[in-house]
Amino acid sequence: MPERSERVIDYSVFKDGTLYLGTATADLPEITYLSDTIKGGGISGEVEAPAPGQTGAMTLTLNWRTSERAAVALLAPKVHSIDLRASIQGFDPSTNEYKEHAMKITVRARPLSMSMGNLEPAATMDSNNSFSVSYIKVTQDGIETLEIDKYNYIHKVDGIDYLAQTRTNLGL
């Protein structure tokens, strides 16, 4: 019987691989392919045709409990390297044992906005930073499962680079 994924045990947010940023929740990027509706002779109706390797804008939002110093520093108008490192809980029903798996999400992102949040007695401030993501890499238990690098024409899913031929065709 296959192992079942259950939850995120915990995770941490780091800048430049080593600087711990604080207590935050993260709204991870949504990956959507650019597409166009195809219709005409030889097609019975319409087909939504995605363009392999071409993705829409990706955003990352870090939600802070208070206004962290790190959140203000992330407003600097430059590319920031942000790592989200998680421990994922699984359960093996054949052995009745819990398993833990490492997940690391690395993004290169530029700041889009920062909300200072709210000031209210005995309450969280709920500040946040939003970023435009041009690079994302997901590694699970040391295995690269996803890498999208918009500026270098890389779009790898499970080790297959779906933009390799495009780079060759463009002379890159």
Rank of each mutant, 00 (worst) to 15 (best):
M1L: 09
R4H: 13
V8L: 10
Y11W: 11
V13L: 12
K15A: 10
G22A: 02
A26P: 01
D27N: 07
L28M: 15
E30K: 03
T32M: 05
Y33K: 04
S35M: 03
S35D: 15
D36N: 04
I43P: 00
V47R: 07
E48W: 01
A51F: 11
P52I: 02
A57C: 06
T61D: 06
L62G: 01
R65W: 03
T66W: 10
S67W: 03
E68R: 13
V72R: 13
V72A: 05
L74I: 03
L75T: 15
A76W: 04
I82K: 00
R85S: 01
R85V: 03
G90I: 09
G90N: 13
D92W: 04
P93T: 02
S94I: 03
T95Q: 15
T95P: 02
K99M: 11
E100I: 05
A102H: 08
M103Y: 02
M103C: 12
A109Q: 05
R110A: 12
E120C: 04
A123E: 10
S127L: 04
N128A: 05
V133P: 01
V133G: 00
D141R: 06
G142C: 04
E144L: 07
L146W: 13
L146V: 10
N152W: 14
Y153V: 05
I154Y: 13
H155M: 07
K156Q: 08
V157G: 05
L163C: 07
A164Q: 15
Q165E: 12
Q165H: 08
Q165Y: 05
G171K: 14
